[in-house]
Write a protein that binds this DNA or RNA. Structure first.
Lengths: 204, 204
DNA sequence: AACATCATGTAATCGGTTACATGATTCA
DNA sequence: TGAATCATGTAACCGATTACATGATGTT
């Protein structure tokens, strides 16, 4: 099955019931490097999932006047997660905008070349750091998505969970570091292509 | 600007005028690891690009009875490529179905775990080989998309082009090898999680 | 009083996927 | 004669992006 926003929601709601807003927050602060989604996507997917009976909506107070909606998994929703987990993984089509662009740096002005490559490297260096930090909070049991499960899982199961998540976030960090390294190699190649180019500014 | 099928077409038509079928073939056999597109996408994108005046359509004979359409870049199309090449690269949102799945292997039956991981590894090993071979045909000047340009570019420009493409395809191969290695590490972790699991069959 | 954050949504559009549909040409 | 390849498209659908839209609550 093709993985989509629906599965992200199923994954997060297994941890605990949440509002759409909380789903969007948890996605942004934690799952985003593996699977990203905007709040629009999440709210519309929640509506469909509720129609299909995979999630249930409860109304809660927010402040004095307003209401918010707390979603939780139904048994059908838990099943849907189990089914997804057992299916073959459908890979996404290859789409690599950076390397598609970089295949043409021989015809691109050097200032653009170095600007794009440096941005790429920096983005992945930061991502790697963020993922390594996340891996640590998993293994230490400090991650909010782990803490929410404490007491509701056996110690052994929780230990396996921590180690598995930490391992995957470390692998995602390794991937980001690979991308940064690849960017550096491409940069070195670009310097051979444009040996005379001297960047004027170093101000960031 | 967001990279899409349109840019793939602009890139390929810079080499030489082609039919939609040839664009789809060249994508499949060569560009696919960097950017993939189906023939449906290509035909519909060609229509839009023609409306916008970025490509021009000429009618040619196919066999006795039928006609085919050969598309070429207009000056506006060449400009659009130049603009795309000079813009900041807009990264795609992170979507990594394999690691999103693998973050849950602690709750997944071991036969599914090893089946999915092994498929992932094998797919990337094959991709890496394919990309290394492509890199070689670039550097040797044997690649069809290079040969089509011979005589229409200066020797130096052609040399830079060959080296740049070969470098990028080698980087894409390195990325595929990284993914295979990452898969192997995840597999090793899974063997710690499921020490008692013995696969019954080795028949592929 | 102003700003950040919490909280919820809709709508237009875009780009991509999948399935459907057709038929000629070429080679074994 | 049959299969592979060449060749072109349409249509329904899906999922994601972007912009629009609103308003309460909590903090400085």
């Amino acid at each position: 099955m093709t993985t989509s926003t629906r599965h992200l929601i199923l994954i997060l709601l297994r941890v605990q019931p949440m509002t759409g807003y909380e789903l969007a927050q948890n996605t942004k602060i934690s799952v985003d490097p593996l699977w990203s989604a905007t709040h629009s996507q999440i709210y519309t997917a929640l509506q469909k999932l509720e129609e299909e009976g995979l999630v249930a909506r409860e109304t809660a107070k927010r402040g004095e006047r307003m209401e918010k909606y707390v979603y939780s998994l139904t048994p059908a929703g838990r099943d849907a997660f189990r089914v997804w987990l057992r299916e073959p993984i459908k890979p996404l089509p290859n789409r690599d905008p950076f390397r598609l662009w970089a295949a043409h740096i021989d015809e691109c002005p050097p200032e653009v070349v170095f600007r794009n490559i440096d941005e790429y490297i920096q983005r992945h260096v930061e991502l790697a750091e963020r993922l390594d930090r996340a891996a640590l909070t998993f293994i230490r049991g400090e991650h909010p998505l782990i803490q929410a499960r404490m007491g509701r899982m056996s110690d052994e199961a929780l230990e396996r969970l921590k180690r598995t998540r930490a391992m995957i976030y470390r692998e995602a960090a390794a991937k980001a570091r690979f991308e940064a390294e690849s960017g550096r190699r491409i940069r070195a190649f670009a310097q051979e292509l444009y040996p005379d180019y001297e960047p004027n500014e170093y101000d960031d």
